[in-house]
């Protein structure tokens, strides 16, 4: 039986892992390769590396981190942040990534989804959506690290992403991100209802129960979190045992 995935996300800035609240106030945490290996040993099902600087001069440092991780860690990982062109896809896949996530660039140029899916296969194209209920009261797609409201409907964009060839959707709720009060169940499940590709919840995990809430009905395929893992507030192994005991399909670690 296919299991639900627990996915630590590592935001990388200048070769270090950082974590901020609502995309601001970045705090330095740890060496990414070391942390990746630790999570893999603990039972993480997958890892996400997010290049939050995405400036050209730091790009090589980041690719270097990806390569080093691929040497040490034998579970899948996704790269996101600053992916704009097919060439960017090629570079990170060559460096050892399994999947590539696009966010703002896909909103600005949806063709990138189509082209990359044709070239590399849908399964390695992840559409990452930053969502927020905007001032007008509807769920809108935000870009540029949550700073710009595109006024695009989140559900429509998710469907369009699937049509263009995305193999997975990560839905990150800006309002719950970093607040540790649980995933946004509403928008995450709405998206899972309207697409037929895996959906990963992101933003808001604070305790074990938050993971259970989002995974237990089976419609969501995985849960992504950062700070609760980075600061050791939740141990992945214990989390997986807890989910298993609560009837969530999970890959347990011996």
């Amino acid at each position: 039986m296919l299991t639900k995935r627990i996915i630590p996300c590592l935001d990388v800035n200048k070769g270090r892992v950082v974590k901020g609240k609502k995309f601001k106030n970045l705090v330095d945490v740890e060496d990414p390769v070391k942390l990746a290996k630790f999570y893999s040993d603990e039972g993480a099902d997958e890892l996400v590396f997010y290049d939050i600087t995405a400036s050209n001069e730091n790009r090589d440092i980041f690719l270097n981190v990806v390569e080093k991780t691929a040497q040490e860690v034998y579970i899948p990982f996704t790269i996101g942040g600053g992916i704009r062109t097919i060439d960017d896809f090629t570079k990170v896949l060559r460096a050892g990534a399994d999947k590539v996530s696009v966010n703002s660039a896909a909103v600005k140029n949806p063709k990138i989804i189509q082209e990359s899916a044709l070239k590399f296969g849908r399964q390695c194209v992840v559409l990452s959506i930053d969502a927020k209920k905007n001032e007008e009261g509807f769920w809108s797609v935000y870009i540029n690290g949550g700073r710009v409201d595109t006024k695009m409907d989140v559900l429509k964009w998710a469907k369009e992403g699937e049509r263009l060839g995305a193999g997975e959707i990560v839905i990150n709720s800006i309002d719950t991100d970093g607040v540790k009060d649980g995933y946004d169940l509403f928008i995450t499940k709405e998206i899972a209802k309207c697409v037929n590709i895996p959906v990963i919840a992101s933003g808001g995990a604070g305790k074990k129960e938050d993971f259970l809430k989002v995974l237990k009905d089976g419609s969501i395929d995985g849960a992504l979190a950062a700070s609760v893992f980075h600061y050791g507030e939740i141990k992945i192994k214990a989390l997986k045992e807890y989910l298993y005991e609560n009837d969530v399909a999970i890959r347990r670690i011996k």
Partner: peptide, 12 residues
């Protein structure tokens, strides 16, 4: 089509 595609994740 009734299955989520891709089949992605850990399976036994």
């Amino acid at each position: 089509d009734q299955l989520k595609v891709p089949h992605m994740g850990w399976n036994d």
